[in-house]
Amino acid sequence: MSTAMKTCLALLFVGSTAFAQTPPPAVPAAPSAVAAAPAAPLSAEKMKEILARIDDRQRNTGDYKAKAFIEQREKNKQDVFYEAVFYRRDISEQFLILFLAPRTEAGKGYLRIDKNLWMYDPSTGKWERRTERERIGGTNSRSQDFDPLNYARDFTHVYVGAERLGAFAVHHLKLRVKDGAKAPDPVIELWVDAATDNVLKQQDYALSGRLLRTAYYPKWEKVFSESKKTEIYYAKEIRIFDEVEKQNRTTVLIDKVDLRPLEPNIFTKAWLEFKSR
């Protein structure tokens, strides 16, 4: 090996080591798939800051409406597919899902006001109180997949380590729900992309430590909000794998987003009853 070649290799080695030790830029120009090395560990403060940023940028100061497709595949069962629209008013933490299709499901809905989650079936005209663990439309999705959890406010946090998820450098965090806060499961683990601060993976655990489900967020989009005067983020695609019934999986795909103001009385039982007449 020539001296020149040795020098080049040495420079390459030093260069890559130096690159690995350099914290990733907050907002990289390109996807972080290029950041092959693990991210630098986060301090507790930094971790909280990132979680607060995640929370903040997924919430609008005005209203939020999105059309979504939800697909559920289960072992030995027919596939289930929904077209639904969901509405959020983040300021008052109100949330509503209204199913549009298939035809037999149209008019069914979920309404959350404070910590109350209601399910409405227009065929019977009855409202039923449900819990945060409700499987939306019998799929593996829950209300948290449409109305994001408040990671910074409602959970305590522990840094697990800097890892890689596929081609991405990620921070692995463990969160435990605070008393009185709303969350379907008491413990969650997050894998946050070091470059963009987007959550790429979330695992939900029971108090016993049993893994219940794994969700992947491979696509994120951002849209400018007139009311917030900045962009808000949403997971365009969510892949949920049931960890109890291993063959079951759900995909949520956001088709369209609309940030125009909603009707003032939309988060009421009366509104959904009226629309489902």
Binding site: S32, N198, L200, V223, F224, S225
Partner: peptide, 18 residues
Amino acid sequence: LFGGGDTELEKTVVARGF
């Protein structure tokens, strides 16, 4: 999902009313 090829982590879109 995270091989890097099809992953889009910060795509900017325009809100379309519907």
